[in-house]
Structure formats: structure tokens, C-alpha cells
Simulated assay, not measured.
Amino acid sequence: MAQRQSLRGAALDEAIDALLAEMISLGLERAPISRPEVQQRLGLTSRATLVGERGKRIESARVAQLKESGKDPDNERRRRSLEERITHLKAENADLVRQRDRMLEALSVIANNCLVKHVDVEEIMAPLRKR
């Protein structure tokens, strides 16, 4: 029974580069790049071999693969800054105020139409009151 020879040094670097190129060409859906995936595909038993410069190459290949698939790798993990959240909430608040004003305007038109037709406004508006 022949044992698989373990990769070391320059041979490991070449194998990693070849594997990363293959995974990039396969795409994000078929071969997402991550350190555990590279370790499994190469048959490595130690994660310590994929740190440092090799880890940086794996990370840059992951970023390249995400960019090729049309995803922005920076926005995937990033939370919005406080200023961005405040701006977003202000815009949402302004939209809600406009909706409220439109609803109040529609309610006043309904009440006015009821008065014109001599319909009891209190009876029509009863379902809108809090119980």
C-alpha cells in the first residue's frame, strides 16, 4: 500500500497556488475558498501549514473569487458606521412622517365626505379608536 507523500516547502506552495487557481476558475458556488477547504483538498493534517504568507495568499484568492462572482468582499462582513445608521434612520423616519401625513389627509377627506352626506362620523370612525 503506497502512502501519500506529504507536501512541504516549495512543493506545498506550488500545490496551494495550483489549487487556488483551480478553485477560482470553478467559481464561488462550486468551490468556495477557505483555509479549511484548502486543507481538506490538499489532504493536510495540520492547520499550521496555512498561516503566514500562505494564509495571505489564500485570503487574497478568496477576495479575488468573491470579486469575480460579483460580490463585494468588504461589504459582506462590515457593519454600517454610526453616521450611516443615523442617515438611514433619518431617511426612514422622514418616509414614515410622509406616510402618516397622507393617512391623516385621507382620514380628513373621509370625515368631510361623511359630513357632506349627513352620515354619523363618530359611527364611521369607531373602528379606528383604541379599545
Rank of each mutant, 00 (worst) to 15 (best):
A10R: 15
E123T: 13
S108C: 06
R4G: 04
R62Y: 05
E84P: 03
C114I: 02
R30V: 05
I33C: 11
R4W: 00
K67H: 03
I16A: 01
V63W: 01
M103K: 09
A64E: 15
G27F: 07
V97H: 12
Q5Y: 01
A94N: 15
L7T: 06
A91T: 14
L66Y: 08
E105C: 11
A48Q: 04
I86P: 02
V63E: 06
I58S: 02
A61L: 07
D120N: 15
A106H: 10
S6L: 09
V97C: 06
E123P: 00
L50E: 06
I33Y: 10
K130A: 11
I58A: 03
G55R: 04
R78Q: 14
V63Q: 07
Q39D: 02
L104V: 10
V38H: 06
V51Y: 00
I24M: 13
L26M: 15
Q5V: 10
I110S: 05
E84H: 04
R78K: 15
Q39S: 12
D101Y: 02
R77G: 11
A91G: 12
Q65W: 00
G70D: 07
I110R: 08
A2I: 11
I124K: 10
E37I: 10
R54G: 03
E14N: 09
R77C: 06
P127T: 05
K117W: 03
L115A: 13
S46W: 00
S60K: 09
L26Y: 05
A11H: 07
L7I: 09
T45I: 01
E14F: 00
V116F: 08
V121Q: 11
I16V: 15
Q65K: 07
L12I: 03
L115M: 14
L28R: 14
R131G: 10
S25T: 14
A61H: 06
S81M: 03
A10T: 08
I16L: 04
I124V: 15
E105F: 12
T45H: 06
E122L: 07
R102D: 14
R35L: 11
L96Y: 09
L128Q: 02
R85N: 11
R98W: 01
N113Y: 00
R30T: 11
H118F: 02
I86H: 13
V121H: 04
E59W: 02
V51W: 00
T45F: 00
S69N: 11
E92T: 09
L128F: 14
L42V: 05
R77N: 10
L7V: 04
N93I: 05
P73F: 01
Q40E: 13
L7K: 12
A111L: 05
D72E: 09
R41G: 06
M23S: 09
P36L: 08
I86Q: 14
I124E: 03
I86L: 15
D13Y: 01
S69Q: 09
L7S: 08
G9H: 09
H88G: 05
N112K: 12
R8F: 11
L20P: 09
D17H: 10
D95M: 10
E83N: 05
A11V: 02
S108D: 15
R8D: 02
L104P: 01
A48N: 04
S46Q: 10
E123Q: 13
A21T: 13
V119K: 08
A11N: 08
P127H: 02
R85Q: 15
I124G: 01
R102E: 15
L66F: 10
